[in-house]
């Protein structure tokens, strides 16, 4: 199968080419939204993740073609834009926090699958750890790329990832017990 030139897709999308936009959306939307959810979870605003990603991609359309052509790797670049968009959204959210009523999380029908539960457990991690995990697994980025997106040293990204994996190990061990759901808050877990 012929490899898709994602930069070309971006350029075409920025010119308003519908099929390229559709393809790019299919390629990246779910991963970008998972990443946005991990950031927005800190404010319980995961339900806005799709909006945030759509806003981010609309911003991408405003980027001049010559700048898009200079993008080295499309994936990390898109994650960086979504991160900025999510952080901007969170700043706005904080201002509106008092008058906003959160929608109930998890509006999908039926019981969540074990994978869905694991994704939620990732969202419950401290956000700095959750974003590393989602960038690694949802985004498929290397530690070098993760450190580039988050503007942190590679070693910091790796240690955050290790901490997150350790928390998830504990979480999964406890899930095997009939206990209440685990919640991670500010880097510390609630005692059972």
């Amino acid at each position: 199968m012929k490899a898709i030139d994602e930069r070309k897709l971006l350029v075409r999308m920025s010119h308003g080419h519908g099929p390229s936009a559709r393809l790019l959306w299919d390629l990246y939307a779910a991963r970008l939204i998972a990443f946005a959810r991990s950031l927005l979870a800190a404010q319980g605003a995961q339900q806005h993740a799709e909006d945030v990603v759509q806003i981010a991609l609309c911003k991408v359309m405003q980027v001049p073609t010559h700048r898009i052509r200079k993008v080295q790797a499309v994936g990390p670049w898109l994650f960086t834009i979504v991160r900025t968009s999510a952080l901007n959204h969170m700043r706005g959210e904080r201002r509106e926090m008092k008058r906003r009523v959160h929608a109930a999380p998890g509006t999908d029908m039926g019981p969540p699958s074990s994978f869905e539960l694991l994704r939620r457990a990732v969202e419950d991690l401290p956000s700095d750890e959750a974003e590393v995990v989602t960038l690694r697994h949802a985004g498929g980025l290397t530690f070098d790329q993760v450190s580039e997106v988050l503007a942190i040293p590679r070693s910091t990204a790796a240690s955050r990832y290790s901490r997150a994996i350790e928390r998830l190990r504990e979480h999964l061990a406890e899930q095997e017990e009939p206990s209440q759901p685990l919640k991670f808050v500010e880097g510390k877990r609630h005692a059972k």
Partner: peptide, 9 residues
């Protein structure tokens, strides 16, 4: 992604 795709259109 309806809003984004509408924007592209």
């Amino acid at each position: 992604g309806s809003e984004f795709l509408a924007e592209v259109q």
